[in-house]
Design a binder for these strands. Structure first.
Length: 585
RNA sequence: GCGCCCGUAGCUCAACUGGAUAGAGCGUCAGCCUCCGGAGCUGAAGGUUACAGGUUCGACCCCUGUCGGGCGCACCA
């Protein structure tokens, strides 16, 4: 091993490169993309690769012949592997040395919270933007899923060697905020017994009334009397709303490196972006988009009312960059559409040095991916700069029955409601458990159960159980072994160590695929692996002190891995779980 | 009408970017504590991966079509 934070993955890659060179096989750039995996089937070894099968065609040799050549030249010396075998149609299967396995618990404990960390991301700067809800109401359930996934992804990327940061984009410059201000002014007027018309599309939620009543009385009265007083109400509403959202998220354990206000882009950055697009010749002025089909034209006609005015607008030639149609970036009245500041914002991200922007969006925005991507390509940004993860909707259930999520006061709808009902740990575990592309059925009754139906408790229980057995060992005067490698005497022990050995690879894979759900999946498997071991092997046995000390250390290593995984999820790892009344059912 | 996402065991979901015999939990059935937390463990049953073609050594994964479910569709964000 070349030292900590080096992946077995890297060792394999180097070994394969050496073997290919020695065997005289030209892999081209294939090696960079080849699959190195941990096989599901343990009898297939600890690592496997399909490299030989990939190269067979170009090498004009049967896959097994290529595999044999690679196996023959693979330099095992100094690697974690003792053997490489050719199997099946041409797989190369690698097996860990016993000494590597025996040394692993020592290594896990010495690396501690850093076990699993790697340099796979090579320090690439990645900005993860998520939630970014309009500052016009409290955090809701949809945001709760995005917050759990986004914050976990940031930690995951960091652990895999990316330079990651989190950001919340605040739409504080649009109509919606003006409407909020107007709504607030009207509610304040109502509060002091005056009348002021409530805006047509205003925010009718009870929370606006609450916030209005908290405004400083004298200042608010003065603003109400001024002709431009709506602006004061807007600014007040904005500040209070953002603080509220920050509080809600903080209670959930989610914070952001930066809250980016859209308003800072106006007018400078927005104008500059428009000029750049014009200079690049990717815009035109027209009443209608160029090259629309008759069918599309008919639809425009049908939507004229909703579409707004007719007149000369500035269009982006989005179709040249993969979009299905051209898009307006400046309305006929001169105001920019949402697209232009969005482009300006992402240009700003790129200018700050981020090589990748990962955005978490709701399913209602998926069509916008091609539009924004087209806008960024039109500016000359890398095609793969923007990476959008669609976080699918959440269906709340209670004992199998759908829970209505309504904006109206009193109904179950907010993040705070959710935390109050099931707790932040459990909510996050459930949100992270599924891939973001899956619709998620969230059963409140299930999440509240503290029993075996609940995977969040299954993992936390494994951790608590380990802490308990370590405490038991201490009672008996048995401490975890230090220094010397672990003696593995039982198949269940070896199986557990091998599971723990995969952790750095799981972190790397999950980070590069941007799939945080692999973490809870791994933790559930690890917990199961631990329980199996615990069932098969007595850990704290005064009659066998030497063996006990080795097993206690293995337990401590397992606890460390569980803690590291739960930490990535933002879920706590309690040392004790108290039985609740419901849990006894 | 067009576009995107989804469809895997009775239910909720995995399957490591195209790999070896598609796996977990719940539910059902049958077992396991003189022992460290039974909130646990072991086993059984349960599948034409919606359907029909195609691509190749190999497909839940890629391509085409069909059927279902969700979402979006033009100077709202």
């Amino acid at each position: 091993m070349r030292g900590e934070w080096t992946l077995v993955w890297n060792e394999l890659r180097h070994g394969l490169a050496t073997a290919l060179a020695a065997a005289g096989i030209d892999a081209g750039d294939r090696l960079a993309k080849v699959e190195l995996a941990i096989p599901r089937e343990r009898s297939h070894g600890d690592w496997t690769t399909n490299l030989a099968m990939i190269l067979a065609k170009a090498a004009k040799q049967p896959p097994r012949a290529v595999a044999d050549a690679i196996a023959k030249h693979f330099p095992l010396e100094g690697t974690p592997f003792s053997a490489v075998e050719v199997a099946g149609p041409g797989f190369l299967n690698f097996r860990y040395r016993d000494t590597f396995v025996a040394a692993l618990p020592v290594r896990i404990l010495s690396e501690g919270g850093a076990y699993g960390r790697s340099d796979a991301g090579a320090g690439e700067k990645v900005l993860v933007e998520f939630v970014s809800a309009n500052p016009t109401g409290p955090m809701n359930i949809v945001s709760a899923r995005a917050a759990a996934v986004g914050s976990s992804l940031v930690r995951l990327l960091d652990m895999a060697g990316f330079a990651s940061a989190s950001e919340f984009y605040v739409n504080d410059a649009g109509n919606q905020v003006d409407l909020l201000g107007e709504s607030m002014a009207a509610r304040f007027a109502e509060h002091i017994g005056e009348s002021r018309p409530f805006p047509e599309e205003g925010y009718r939620g009870e929370y606006v009334r609450t916030l209005a009543a908290e405004l400083p009385d004298a200042e608010a009265r003065a603003a109400l009397a001024r002709p431009d007083g709506a602006r004061w109400f807007r600014d007040q509403a904005l500040v209070r709303m953002i603080e509220w959202q920050k509080r809600d998220l903080a209670a959930y354990g989610v914070t952001f490196d930066r809250w980016f206000l859209e308003s800072v882009l106006h007018p400078g950055a927005v104008d500059k972006t428009r000029e750049q697009l014009i200079e690049r010749g990717v815009t035109y002025r027209a009443e209608k988009p160029e090259g629309v089909t008759e069918a599309a034209e008919a639809r425009v006609g049908a939507n004229e009312g909703a579409a707004g005015g007719s007149g000369i607008a500035l269009w982006l030639r989005a179709t040249q960059f993969g979009d299905s149609m051209d898009r307006v970036i400046t309305r006929s009245d001169g105001r920019p559409t949402y697209l232009l500041p969005d482009i300006a914002y992402h240009l700003d991200k790129r200018t700050r040095g981020f090589r990748t922007a990962i955005n978490l969006w709701g399913p209602d925005h998926h069509a916008y991916i091609t539009t924004l991507t087209a806008g960024l390509k039109a500016l000359g940004l890398e095609e793969d700069f923007l990476h959008v993860l669609i976080v699918q909707q959440v269906n709340l259930l209670r004992d199998g029955q759908a829970v209505k999520m309504s904006k109206r006061a009193g109904e179950f709808d907010t993040l705070t409601d959710l935390i109050d009902e099931v707790g932040a740990d459990c909510a996050k575990f459930f949100f992270l458990m599924r891939s973001t592309t899956s619709h998620l059925d969230f059963d409140l009754a299930l999440a509240k159960k503290q029993n075996d139906e609940n995977p969040a408790f299954y993992v936390q229980y494994a951790h608590a159980r380990i802490c308990s057995v370590i405490a038991k060992g201490a009672e008996l005067g048995l401490a975890a072994a230090t220094g010397e490698p672990t003696e593995l005497t039982d198949a269940a022990e070896t199986s557990l160590v091998r599971q723990l050995a995969t952790w750095p690879e799981v972190v790397r894979g999950a980070a590069q695929a941007r799939e945080p759900h692999r973490i809870p999946t791994f933790l559930v498997e690890t917990a199961a692996e631990f329980h199996r071991f615990y069932h098969a092997c007595r850990v704290a046995d005064p009659a066998q002190p030497a063996l006990s000390r080795h097993r206690l250390r293995l337990c401590a290593a397992a606890a460390q891995v569980l803690r590291n995984g739960l930490a990535l999820m933002g879920v706590s790892a309690p040392e004790r779980l108290e039985r609740s009344e419901e849990g006894l059912a």
